[in-house]
Design a binder for these strands. Structure first.
Lengths: 193, 193
DNA sequence: AGCTTATTACAACAGTTGTTATGTTCAAAG
DNA sequence: CTTTGAACATAACAACTGTTGTAATAAGCT
């Protein structure tokens, strides 16, 4: 087991604590305890807490993007866009923890310009991915011409964000099929005809 | 100046600190300093920090609801629904601070069942308000029959949430008119015909 | 084997936190 | 004038925080 693998273990322990206890109660000692080790391990793999925090944020985001890229190759046409958006939704119970961590980070970022900037960057990557997909659909004549693709991409992301946040707060708010129905309803108006 | 007035001043000082520094860096001492007093004032008007926190959460929410109720009486027909939703959006720069506080609270609530429960309750009140409005529109024959009003209300709230969160993170994401356009686009499909 | 480096443990640090107790001020009520 | 209690200040409390340094252990390599 190499350096990066152990590093990932530390981060995963951190995730578990964040989802369970919240980000502000996720201390170095709490992470170490969750990992079943001393704080020495945590400090050995991360210079300070900010580095750990940013790395955790990057990982939880990168995972979604990788999944989305894989899904983009698997599907064709309008379904490609839908399936990519479905991936970001907390359809399964296990997905909710990811969103818990994400929401915790968002709240934690208020008043911390450094973290807000990071979020902007990551949302930008996500938007570019959606814009790219929309452009392809447009080239195939599946969605209307003359659309502001960046705006439409932001709108879809905002919708997914809103749905997911609702589910994090109240899991019974939307069933899996209801979540998907809302996304489909938002995608449909883009279609031609 | 009575007890409740002074109490409100403490809360407003807390809001300012939260929007500027973040919720986890909003200590009793920071609130007192923002208020220009000692911590004695803060502890005098709030038994402990949790009481202060919950009260602040209630205030920031109650304000929106009051505004919404006022708007409900001012407008008629389909515009009533739209204007109520517009009120919740961070259309002006000054509205963003409210949403900053709200997002900070949401993130802070992860891992704190007590706070999550509070959020559920408040979202429930908001939903009832929208459902009520939708029912009126339905009775007037302005929106389609056979709709799951609770579901539609949740969907609209989720959309407003998503848009607002995007703006909090990246203010240039959506202009005021774009935000309104997205809400109108979500309301339109409910219309008859 | 011995040497080197990575990994982990542990203790101590200075600072911050919420909370509590005590002291002070001061205006209104008796 | 005396007394009462609210409003505020101040200081101290124990608990917890991130960080750092040092020592012990394990693993790999020659």
């Amino acid at each position: 087991m190499g350096f990066d693998d152990r590093r990932a273990e530390v981060i995963q322990a951190a995730w578990r604590v964040i989802a369970r206890e919240g980000l502000d109660r996720t201390s170095m000692r709490a992470i170490a305890q969750e990992l079943g080790s001393s704080t020495g391990v945590v400090t050995h793999y991360f210079r300070n807490k900010e580095e750990l925090t940013l790395f955790a944020l990057e990982q939880v985001f990168e995972f979604v993007v990788v999944e989305m890229r894989a899904s983009a190759e698997k599907w064709q046409g309008m379904e490609r866009l839908e399936q990519m958006l479905f991936l970001a939704l907390p359809l399964a119970v296990s997905d909710r923890d990811d969103w818990k961590v994400w929401v915790a980070f968002l709240g934690y970022s208020i008043g911390r310009d450094r973290l807000i900037q990071e979020h902007c960057k990551r949302y930008g990557i996500l938007r570019d991915l959606i814009v790219e997909t929309l452009a392809e659909l447009q080239a195939e004549g599946l969605i209307r011409a003359g659309l502001d693709l960046a705006f439409e991409a932001n709108a879809l992301i905002a919708l997914v964000d809103g749905i997911s946040m609702s589910v994090v707060i109240n899991p019974e708010q939307f069933s899996a099929s209801q979540q998907q129905a809302l996304v489909v309803r938002a995608v449909d108006p883009l279609r031609v005809g």
